[in-house]
Amino acid sequence: MTPADLLAALFPSGHTVVVGPDNIMSGTALATGGTEVAVLGIANATPLSPEIAITLAGQILDILRADDRKPIVLLIDTASQRMTRRDEMLGLYEYLGHLAKVITLAGARGHRTVGILYGTAAAGAFIATTLATQTLIAVDGAHPSVMDLPSIARVTKLPLETLEEKARTTPIFAPGVAPLAATGAVAEIWTAANGDLSHRLATVLAAIPPADDRDQLGAARGGRKLAHDVAEKVAASFAGEAG
């Protein structure tokens, strides 16, 4: 999906969102139902650099300045984090971590945060952007991954065909929307053929933001059966061992 098509589908009542320097998207939009939302994003599968991360974080901090609980919608098509020696030398982890922190802070301060993945997002760039929002939606064209299968094959020293075969039996490592939805990362999958995106967005914006329930979602969908149970057991014994 192109940014223009996506914006038109999400905000038929109008928006001011433009794709600016470094493929950073920003503007405001009117959601169906009349709520004004802030829109930020990354276009054209642009790798997440320290510059892009700090610009997005700065724009979110500007939104927080108004203290008006305006919802923030993050439209992401980013590839992976940029892989250069220079970025790592400058502390890329701090830039990505800062972006994740600022998105989380926005949610904590009453801004509904919704991530809409319409292209690729991988590894640290995925964690720092859409995975940091309260609700992650995948639309047509979304391709989330931790690492692509050929790279996993290199690291695990397994033949690609073997990995592809194993990926058919478990959603635990394979890239793509379906496996990530099964593990609880993706809350909802929207396809344009399957109904009006703007109404669905309005419903999500109106919903009370969930606490982090992704492990419960993964258990219910059968893609991550143990995580929630293990976390609960640790928490229960933590309380039991106190004092």
Binding site: A108, V146, M147, P179, T183
Partner: peptide, 26 residues
């Protein structure tokens, strides 16, 4: 980082850890 044999579960665990770390700090 993420255990590639369990890449999706590991990636989510990182995201959940970050959120939980920030909740502890809050």
């Amino acid at each position: 980082g993420v255990r590639l044999q369990e890449a999706n579960a590991g990636e989510l665990a990182v995201s959940e850890t970050i959120r939980a770390v920030l909740a502890v700090r809050q």
